[in-house]
Nucleic acid binder design. Sequence first.
DNA 1: GTACATATTGCAAAGGTTTTCAATTTGTGC
DNA 2: GCACAAATTGAAAACCTTTGCAATATGTAC
Lengths: 352, 352
Amino acid sequence: MAAETKTILDIAREAGVSPATVSRVLSGHPNVSAKTSAKVQTVVDKYRFKPNSIARGLLQKHSKALGIIMPDIKHPYYASVFSAAQEEARRHGYVVQLYRLAYNAMITDDFANQLIERRLDGVMLCGGFIESTGLSGLPAVLTRLQQYMPIVTICPPIPGLSCINIYADLAAGLRKLVRHLYNLGHRRIAFIGATAETRSMGEREQGFTDEMLHLGLDPIMQPENIHTPAMGEQAVLKLLSAAPPAEWPTALAVVNDLMALGVLRQLHAMGLRLPEDMAVVGCDNQFFSAFTSPPLTTLDVYSEEHGAAAMRQLLQAQETHAAPFTQTRDPTLIVRESCGAQLDRRTPHPQA
Amino acid sequence: MAAETKTILDIAREAGVSPATVSRVLSGHPNVSAKTSAKVQTVVDKYRFKPNSIARGLLQKHSKALGIIMPDIKHPYYASVFSAAQEEARRHGYVVQLYRLAYNAMITDDFANQLIERRLDGVMLCGGFIESTGLSGLPAVLTRLQQYMPIVTICPPIPGLSCINIYADLAAGLRKLVRHLYNLGHRRIAFIGATAETRSMGEREQGFTDEMLHLGLDPIMQPENIHTPAMGEQAVLKLLSAAPPAEWPTALAVVNDLMALGVLRQLHAMGLRLPEDMAVVGCDNQFFSAFTSPPLTTLDVYSEEHGAAAMRQLLQAQETHAAPFTQTRDPTLIVRESCGAQLDRRTPHPQA
DNA sequence: GTACATATTGCAAAGGTTTTCAATTTGTGC
DNA sequence: GCACAAATTGAAAACCTTTGCAATATGTAC
């Protein structure tokens, strides 16, 4: 390994010039004669020489690396964000590093130190911890971190922290979903997966409740802190066994599509016909959401667009010290068969 | 940004010692008096000083960073591998960087140069390109890369390249699936998604064909180069419209669970009852595979175990120059309702 | 050929750490 | 208090590049 790593000095020596000249040739500096340039290039090509980017980084005080912090890359939402952000970074010559921070973990001083030690050029925060409703201490850690590198998030602004926020307004999204169900004639609608634990989920719950009350309806809540398919099954079981079928809701709004997977499955297992006996809507428009049975009505929350946009802004903030700002967008309603309406098969493509 | 980044020199000055001593305190070197150590520690704590890991890397000739190369982090298989590998790396104080290389892209000299320039401590190759059946030039590029850093793959060995390979024997897996279907009474079985493009997919096809012939059956092939849900729908349409229902296969083996998603959906759309009218099996045991309707019989291919194991071996190879080796494991058959057998709800958990 | 402007090149410092080796301090036994 | 060993500390080199500045070479106008 690392057999014969040439340095710029070796190249310079062999080409009969100074290391400074080699450096200039390599970086395309204008003030270098064609003859010298050619001479140097020959040697560079001969050894396929590539300058040590660590040494360069030390001098130029950058690492050309960005950190992305998220709770779970296996979750399709985060995978989408990460994928788009990586691609955007790559196009600008940067590399991304994944830092995992569990859903329920707080961002600590030690955690921030890792990023500082590595001299990252910026960091992108994506949900989980950062979304925690108990934000005690968080702004302090992040304010310190921000003295070393720019921060962007794809979540609502964190009180006490001024950084770039680009996110989808999920409360607005849930209002859309409720109105859609209402227009289809539903009056008893339950929300599955309510939780106060993270703000992103809290927003969904808030939007649901607001719109229900606004429509003069009574919001039925089935809270659940973990939003997996398996928990979706359990939630349905709990909700429906708590009341006789005559009093069941006619529609279920599930906190996200992942959990909806289990909801659908449990409803099938109970022998209900979908969407006739029960309408279901989800949130996030995952790649699988068009392929459930029935296909799921859901919200497009712009995971890829926002991942790319946030990364773009991060890169720009890093170069120009641009001012912090917040940008929101209302999710798009994606109507499919799961609540008994016309077809919409648009879907994000997992193999683009 | 980067307001007042202290250096080890600043700390040394303020503590009234030499930078060497500070360095020793920071790295827990034994030969330093308790008194001095305390004095230094006070100043370090005061500024929350963290040594610049880039400078350290320059001197120690490592970056404490590993590269992971994969075609698509949005694909749940790759997300699992990446997640497990990242966690393993983190536990050893390393950071992972994602490098994307499209399914159909070749690993070029330029691509390898990126990794070399960044002085990665190792690289993990995960399918796609690397799997291409047309391997022309690949061993040369990788052999060169290997002179700079250790390589592990989670694919079958690449002819002409000696590195660590840890992977699931998918041919064996598909033989298991075929035998399972055979035992359930199926005789006309089709393979959906056959392709010669990547070895991993080619292996599945090979295993299928081999076992069919071994059982004296005629393999029915429905080739498809792209293995998305949408293509799954199309493949079913093509396959079934090519013959009268009486001659249809009674079971479909789909190249992976993702594509099976579309297969199931299309079969539903055509009004078939599953599994009575048509059995379906997939491959990969994704998080959603237990929640399709009906739940999918599939193969566990150890994405997380192998991601973690490969990373572990990479780290070890990097430190000890361990000898290359190859390790295979037969996938585990996960039986669910999609081919009409007893229940098995084990599933990888997307929110662990 | 001279004087000047311009294009090219090299020297040396800087970036922040770790580590070897030598120097210094401290401790021990008498 | 002395001689010596052991523990602690510091000076300086090394890692590899980029870049400001000075020096040299080249070109131009007379």
